[in-house]
């Protein structure tokens, strides 16, 4: 199918976007459009005004000052996957980025778009929650920072007001703990059946943030003894699971185990595909 009619506006400043969203509450912001355009093609989304933010150069930056990684909303997934400094300082983001969709999707899809879309099976919302990032939101009063843990409300739902947009995300350096990633999908590039970021604090405790298994990503404290099944099960009980079937629970546990194993790898092994993929 083809999209319904809309008015197209090209923004050059975030202030323009906020004003235009205020004028047209059913307007939509388009960044990469890799989730929005399919929805428009099938007329599941019919915005009256489409506000193109790709011309706002200020949203296209990656900066690391030694303690915080500052990512502009318009950074493409592939740019994160290829960024040498991110690979060095936040390797888990490199690995996660490589799992997003396909190459052609990663070349156009953006960080901000993925966070605003808030698909519970997508990588970036979980990554931001797992790494305790803050999301920079701009509305009429200006920019405010929302902790990622408070940003996602449920399936495709965030705290964004109709006249607000994401301008970036700030990811703090991870300190001494180790973070691993794992994901299983039916085919390369498909949405995750289950995925997880697992942080090992190296003192027998850690945190797990799943995606694809519940309504929104949540970072949950877990004990990490040598036998961990009970820990994972207790953690899963804290979530609003989208499927409580035992095989789905078992998959979530397996993925968490795999992410924990991944966290212990160093150097090239950390980036090896089989380290994360296992037998999927």
């Amino acid at each position: 199918m083809k999209p319904a009619t809309f008015e197209y506006r090209k923004a050059t400043t975030v202030a323009d976007v906020v004003q235009w969203l205020k004028d047209a509450p059913d307007g939509k912001v388009i960044a990469g459009g890799q989730s929005l355009v399919p929805l428009m093609n099938f007329r599941l989304a019919r915005p009256s005004v489409l506000i193109d933010i790709n011309g706002i150069r200020a949203l296209h930056h990656v900066e690391y000052d030694g303690s915080t990684l500052d990512l502009g909303a318009l950074i493409h997934h592939q740019e994160i996957a290829d960024h040498p400094e991110i690979q060095k300082k936040f390797p888990v983001l490199t690995v996660a980025a490589r799992h997003i969709g396909h190459w052609a999707i990663r070349n156009r899809g953006t960080l901000g778009g993925s966070l605003a879309h808030a698909d519970p099976a997508s990588e970036w919302p979980a990554a931001m929650v797992a790494l305790q990032a803050e999301i920079d939101v701009q509305g009429s009063p200006g920019v405010h920072r929302v902790p990622a843990s408070e940003f996602f409300l449920g399936y495709y739902t965030t705290v964004l007001e109709p006249d607000e947009m994401i301008v970036g995300a700030r990811v703090p350096a991870t300190g001494a703990s180790r973070i691993g990633f794992a994901e299983v999908a039916r085919r390369t590039g498909d949405f995750a059946l289950a995925g997880a970021f697992v942080e090992d604090c190296l003192d027998g405790t850690g945190f797990v943030t799943w995606f694809g298994v519940s309504d929104k990503p949540q970072r949950i404290a877990v004990a990490l003894p040598p036998a961990r099944e009970t820990s994972w099960r207790e953690a899963l009980e804290q979530l609003t699971l989208n499927d409580v079937a035992e095989d789905k629970i078992a998959l979530a546990i397996e993925i968490a185990e795999r992410a924990l194993k991944h966290s212990a790898l160093v150097g090239a092994a950390y980036f090896g595909a089989h380290a994360i993929r296992g037998r999927d």
């Binding site: 199918m1 197209y8 890799q34 355009v37 093609n41 070349n107």
Partner: peptide
């Protein structure tokens, strides 16, 4: 497919493969 899955419409934009069904011509 017109939903970005099949890849038949792939073109290069500034040298990079992208889906031409997931971008409006005005962009």
């Amino acid at each position: 497919c017109e939903q970005g899955v099949c890849g038949a419409c792939t073109v290069l934009i500034d040298g990079k493969p992208e889906r031409s069904c997931l971008i409006f011509a005005v962009q």
